[in-house]
Nucleic acid binder design. Structure first.
Lengths: 140, 140
DNA sequence: CGGATATATGACTTATTTACTCATAATTAT
DNA sequence: ATAATTATGAGTAAATAAGTCATATATCCG
């Protein structure tokens, strides 16, 4: 029940990119220098953020990553699910998983888990990258 | 970001106990027979539920576990934190952990994580064992 | 063109957590 | 006493998270 390093690194990386400016690019190397995290690891996370359409990239010299969506459109939900996969509050909700208990056919708990899951998702959807940037700057 | 088997088993076990009746006891063995889960594993979870005051126990023949709180007083938050530990949405909030990043001293993200964490907690606090029992019985 | 700089991709490794099992002690009813 | 039950802690196996390594591919610039 937590945000792993994948999610937290992704948030920090996006903040860096957003702060750099609207159309400028930022290399993984530079992000990792200021954030003090592993470059090879963040590279993998960046690919996932790209696949979900949050960022774009340019290769080669003067290349790097840039925001493809506006900070006010990027939610914490988008960021975290991009790098950590879908938020399933319970494995029971994951249809791809083998059904692992004898009640799975018609389980009353599934409805409860489902509602809880949506409620948690909503919380993360209500926080945008723009708000996080605001929080960062609006302090002593 | 999910409820593990610890939490799910605990919920099921408490439902069984609650359904048995107010002052009757139920053995781990019987719970596991009807729920089809490992007895030795559930025993450990029961100890945790006991430590948090949700259930009580009697040893020996005719012993077993019983509800110590009323179903309407037991929340999903109580159950899950009992067996899975406190809900820290981010390790950053966990003061017992070694501070693992260079920003930890004065981090603007901590406030955000903290608010999110409380919001998620509230969701789990709003669901009681009584409601779950109602959901179970109020269906075809 | 050719070298430098970046991202892209996937296999591999290590650490941590989860989900158990096993053994044994302590308590209680009959 | 004995059988049934909880109590406790050590140990193990599987899954997930976290991170490394190697290499391919694209782009700019001289």
């Amino acid at each position: 029940m937590n945000i792993s390093t994948r999610g937290r690194y992704a948030i920090r990386a996006l903040i860096e990119i957003a702060e750099k400016g609207e159309k400028s690019v930022l290399t993984v190397k530079k992000i990792c220098e200021s954030q003090d995290i592993s470059t090879t690891y963040l590279e993998h996370l960046m690919v996932k953020l790209k696949k979900s359409g949050i960022i774009g990239s340019h290769r080669g010299t003067k290349g790097g990553f840039f925001l493809k969506m506006k900070p006010e459109e990027i939610t914490l939900f988008d960021i975290i699910t991009s790098v950590e996969g879908p938020v399933f509050l319970s494995k029971c909700l994951k249809t791809s998983d083998k059904i692992d208990c004898k009640f799975s056919k018609d389980c009353y708990l599934r409805g409860i888990y489902s509602r809880l899951s949506r409620a948690v998702e909503d919380i993360f959807k209500q926080v945008t990258l723009e708000q996080i940037l605001g929080e960062k700057n609006g302090r002593g």
